[in-house]
Design a protein around this nucleic acid. Structure first.
Lengths: 199, 199
DNA sequence: AGTTGTGAACTTATTCACAGCC
DNA sequence: GGCTGTGAATAAGTTCACAACT
């Protein structure tokens, strides 16, 4: 669903009031029927013969995937990736914002990154009191599970995990993994064997 | 397959000479039968009653997915994400290395990042002559397609794309997308509705 | 006994194609 | 005429369960 939301964003910006499943689907590289099926799972949002009202559908999708309200997230790990994520603007259009920053390194604590002060990881305990239930985990593999446990204890229920491991979390906590090396390692398979072998 | 390779890496490091599909599968959070099926697509690698030889299987998987030789990649876009990727060490264990760096920004050109000199994007043309057939695209959305075209022209056949769009490339070029915002935007769906709504 | 490789059963996802609505 | 929503058909992926092997 988020991908449709982004597609709609594009059409809305272009000034289109309506869009067909054909147009919207092709903008995100899938078949129109697929998109209609996906939407139909949640209800009927279109008008036969006309299509979808871009703004209305966007609002409806936001409501379905709980992006109808802005949300704050915590970022743990202010290394290179963490800092890159702080400066990243791609979350804005989904109403997501990194509002708390944590690191273990004492030298980093107190420093400002994008107007957000790096806090001691030990102060992580009461995120839920600050209205934060989402977290991005950008720490080394060796620290990931330990910090995931702390996040769960702090009330976090959704984790975007960049560490190359399967976190163990309670049933009611959702983890989504992004494993950059793994994705990159898939590419050579599609190359002719031995092409570009170095050394 | 790359995920099994990583799992094997772990077992080899632990000093295990053999591993069963059960153990290996659970280390990567899948069912044993799934793993055996996946492997069986490429051949028979195990010994009934015994399991798999960790080193041998790793080498065989590397050969299957063309990771049996070290490979070089170009990184385009030396913004925050690009620099984070340069410092990232997760590629090493797959024999992948960023060996060329490009940016559009004249002020950045010539600067060293991790012992690699940032080159002018206009010098991108002959990557294949340098033995580079893989690229990581870490540039803003607006530049992504244009640079993808250049990469293809330069002989690149595999692209890891961080821009939130579907690149159009020739059939023989493989693109793998990593869309961080999209993945993050999936999380709130699993949260109770309106929990943590800010403002 | 322990484990693989695999056909068969099951589940899930995708695509087709068309009735019904605008 | 154009487009949606959806049942039916197809395809793809997963899991089971067991014969065959060490």
């Amino acid at each position: 669903m988020p991908v449709y939301l982004r597609g709609l964003h594009f059409f809305t910006e272009q000034g289109h009031k309506r869009v067909s499943s054909k147009k919207l689907a092709e903008s995100v590289n899938i078949k129109p029927a697929q998109m209609r099926k996906d939407l139909s799972y949640f209800g009927d949002f279109g008008t036969p013969g006309v299509g979808y009202d871009t703004k209305k559908l966007a609002e409806q999708i936001r409501s379905i995937i709980h992006l109808n309200v802005p949300r704050k997230a915590a970022l743990v790990g202010c290394g290179n990736l963490g800092q890159a994520l702080m400066k990243y603007t791609g979350f804005d259009s989904f109403g997501l914002k990194i509002a708390a920053l944590f690191d273990k390194d004492k030298r980093k604590i107190g420093r400002l990154v994008q107007n957000c002060k790096i806090e001691d990881i030990r102060k992580i305990s009461a995120l839920s009191k600050r209205g934060i239930f989402l977290a991005i985990l950008a720490v080394p593999l060796c620290a990931a599970q330990e910090i995931a446990d702390k996040l769960v204890q702090a009330g976090v229920q959704g984790i975007l995990n960049f560490a190359p491991c399967q976190l163990r979390v309670p049933r009611n906590t959702k983890v989504i993994n992004i494993d950059i090396a793994l994705d990159f390692a898939r590419l050579p398979y599609y190359l002719p064997k031995n092409i570009g072998a170095s050394e």
